[in-house]
């Protein structure tokens, strides 16, 4: 079950702070969330793999899967393991987006913003299920999500990446010819499992590894 973050949704709609939005606007977004929460069909599948080689240029996993990316290799420097996962809010949300488009573009923009926020929240929530109590007691923690398309990790790895997590069968996530994930409200990512005793087991996402420098939502500019 995905929650939703109102200020995050407002940010996706172009508000810099929540104060800029009217109460009416906030109310509408809450109503949209109620509608979406009823139909969202959240699913994820994760595969935890040992890292057998990290050359600084690429990372190789125990089953032979290799990801070529200096940025990812750097992020996973201290990790013996990583989790590959794919999560989705389901195709019902895409149906809601299409219905909203027919009702008027303002509605579609709200549905889009709320759904995007729900997806982020869902990924944050499911991360709490990825580590066992034993893992946490042993001082293991999860690094921020790193997705195909971030930094120098090419989005071209998506077909193989999704096969690795059996995404089509397990959670129904597939790719278009243009490598857009369908359902569109889906995430695929690598999460490093690092040994950091005493650290918060779930770090927050940061924008530092992303090359989209003109992004309106960038947090570190």
């Amino acid at each position: 079950m995905a929650t939703f973050n109102l200020s995050e949704a407002l940010r996706y709609m172009g508000y810099k702070t929540s104060e800029e939005a009217t109460e009416e606007q906030k109310q509408k977004l809450n109503e949209v969330y109620e509608e979406l929460a009823k139909v969202a069909h959240c699913r994820y599948h994760a595969v935890r793999l040992a890292i057998v080689l990290n050359t600084g240029d690429y990372v190789a996993f125990e089953n032979g899967f290799v990801l070529n990316s200096k940025d990812l290799a750097t992020k996973l420097e201290a990790c013996d393991e990583a989790i590959l996962f794919c999560a989705t809010l389901g195709s019902e949300i895409d149906r809601e987006l299409m219905q909203a488009a027919a009702r008027g573009v303002e509605k579609q923009v709200m549905v889009q913003a709320v759904a995007a926020s729900m997806l982020e929240s869902y990924c944050d929530e499911l991360e709490t299920e990825l580590l066992t109590k034993e893992d946490i007691d042993a001082g293991l923690c999860l690094l921020p999500r790193f997705s195909p398309g971030y930094g120098d990790l090419s989005i071209q790895v998506q077909p193989e990446f999704l096969r690795q997590v059996d995404a089509a069968r397990r959670v129904g996530v597939t790719l278009t010819d243009g490598l857009v994930m369908t359902p569109t409200k889906s995430v695929s990512a690598v999460i490093g499992v690092a040994y950091k005793p005493g650290a918060n087991p779930l770090e927050h996402h940061d924008c530092s590894c992303c090359s989209l420098h003109n992004c309106a939502f960038r947090k570190d500019k």
């Binding site: 987006l97 488009a101 008027g104 573009v105 579609q108 923009v109 889009q112 278009t176 010819d177 243009g178 490598l179 857009v180 369908t182 569109t184």
Partner: peptide
């Protein structure tokens, strides 16, 4: 365009 199924931006321009 082909391969892309995101249409919000296009719909905003349309209206």
């Amino acid at each position: 365009v082909k391969g892309d199924i995101h249409d919000i931006g296009k719909n905003i321009v349309k209206v």
